[in-house]
Amino acid sequence: MTLRYPDYFCDFVCTGSGCRDNCCKMGWDIEIDDDTLGYYREHGGELCERLCENIYEEDGAHYMSQEGGCPFLSAEGLCSVQQEMGAEHISEICREHPRFYEWFGDYKEAGLGLCCEEVSRIVMTHERPVLFTEKQTDEAPDDLEFDMDIFTAVRNIRDRLIDIAQDRGFTILQRLALICWCTEDINEALLDEDAERLKKISGMLAIDGFRMEIAIQAENEALTQAEDKPALLMRLFSVFERMEYMNSFGDRFALTRADAEKMLGAEKGFNKEYADLQYELENILVYFLYRYFIKCTRDFSAEERLYSAVYMTLAVRGIFLREYAENGALPDKESRIELVKDFSKEVEYDADNTDMIFEDIQQYDDVRDMLCGLCF
């Protein structure tokens, strides 16, 4: 198996009881894999009996009920199951979270989810462009079907998109517009299952001059159309305002026209103060492209996955901009890290909420124009 992962992947170490937003205290019901459940049932003993009593079955899967937090969390905020039986006997999701994986035959990708406080810190403090490493492992190949030509084309296109996301010759907004501008062509080629066309698009996107040409064209068209930018910002924020949240995080997206105008009036000062910190949004964009675009190999949803990466990157930027407009200063580093973690936890890790972004993208024909209008 070939394993690919970002260069910061091995930097992650769970902070355990030192975490301010411990995932074991969320109250989420945690899926228990069959091997772990089998061990609990066969091993016996007081702890295993208590574990089995807290596990229930739903739709053929098994979950541990954790209302108010995991019942097996010690007073020190550590896992008593791991302490007593070892990490190999906690459920797979507990052992692996916040890591994520994607399999394609003898190729596997790994990454770290932004919903974790420590991952958010790692990503938001990574000042260099993200590099990706590959190594060989002893893992057996996966047997899920996929088209190798499409997979290769999708992976190559994604590499070019990540190159664009990390092209610091452009501002982060220009890079977002570049991705929007090529999304329709990529989507059409993928829906036609035209691997050769995808290969040609990938080749064009590797050319610096072509990128500059697209950036100029996107800006000229956005400025020519002269859309009502406060209305565009309100439209973007409204998608996130309608979502369901576990706490008051959604209030950040409740936007009146006066709020939008205030934010846009402060944008010039924000851009100047945030100029040396653009790598934060760059890393967030790279994260969404790396994690989700590869899924197009099987679901062919290039348009939804590319535009949603832009939606979410612009939403995070919008939260920062609103704080700047309201307070006259950027939120500090720790606050930005926490905002990104909360955004990921509340939006990215809630399937119903991400579906709302997909539905908005599918509903309108002018998504590219709306997003590019916000970038210029």
Results as ranks from 00 to 15, higher is better:
180 C>R: 03
296 C>E: 13
328 G>H: 12
349 Y>D: 10
374 L>C: 06
234 M>I: 14
218 A>E: 05
123 V>R: 10
364 Y>I: 08
80 S>F: 00
334 E>L: 09
103 W>K: 14
51 L>D: 00
320 F>I: 11
277 L>W: 06
268 K>F: 02
79 C>M: 02
172 I>Y: 13
36 T>D: 13
31 E>C: 09
205 L>W: 09
166 Q>T: 04
25 K>R: 15
368 R>S: 14
334 E>W: 08
267 E>I: 09
209 G>C: 03
229 K>C: 02
218 A>M: 03
118 E>S: 07
282 E>Q: 15
150 I>W: 00
215 A>I: 03
124 M>D: 04
177 A>L: 01
125 T>Q: 14
374 L>H: 01
12 F>C: 06
300 F>E: 10
321 L>D: 02
78 L>V: 10
249 F>P: 07
117 E>M: 01
375 C>S: 08
16 G>N: 12
54 N>Q: 14
41 R>Y: 03
269 G>K: 06
89 H>S: 03
191 L>Y: 12
174 Q>S: 09
46 E>D: 15
353 N>S: 01
182 C>I: 14
186 I>T: 07
83 Q>C: 08
352 D>S: 12
23 C>D: 01
37 L>M: 13
28 W>F: 13
299 D>S: 14
290 Y>C: 02
233 L>P: 05
38 G>S: 14
164 I>D: 01
168 R>K: 02
50 R>H: 05
268 K>C: 01
342 D>G: 03
370 M>D: 02
134 E>M: 08
241 E>W: 11
288 F>R: 13
183 T>P: 00
290 Y>V: 05
27 G>M: 01
289 L>R: 11
159 D>S: 12
138 D>L: 11
190 L>C: 11
28 W>S: 11
190 L>S: 08
271 N>Q: 12
215 A>H: 03
190 L>A: 13
248 S>L: 11
330 L>K: 07
217 Q>L: 12
92 E>Q: 11
228 D>C: 04
213 E>A: 14
49 E>G: 13
77 G>M: 04
344 S>Q: 02
130 V>S: 07
179 I>S: 05
367 V>H: 09
59 D>P: 01
28 W>Q: 08
204 M>L: 15
310 V>R: 02
252 R>K: 14
126 H>I: 06
126 H>D: 06
68 G>A: 08
324 Y>A: 07
191 L>K: 15
165 A>K: 02
362 Q>P: 06
160 R>C: 08
56 Y>P: 04
78 L>W: 05
154 V>W: 00
172 I>N: 07
189 A>C: 09
350 D>F: 08
82 Q>G: 08
68 G>E: 05
337 I>L: 02
25 K>L: 13
76 E>W: 03
125 T>A: 06
128 R>P: 05
36 T>N: 13
47 L>G: 07
37 L>S: 10
182 C>H: 02
178 L>A: 00
202 S>L: 03
281 L>K: 04
106 D>S: 13
230 P>A: 04
187 N>K: 05
69 G>S: 12
236 L>H: 06
360 D>F: 03
139 E>Y: 09
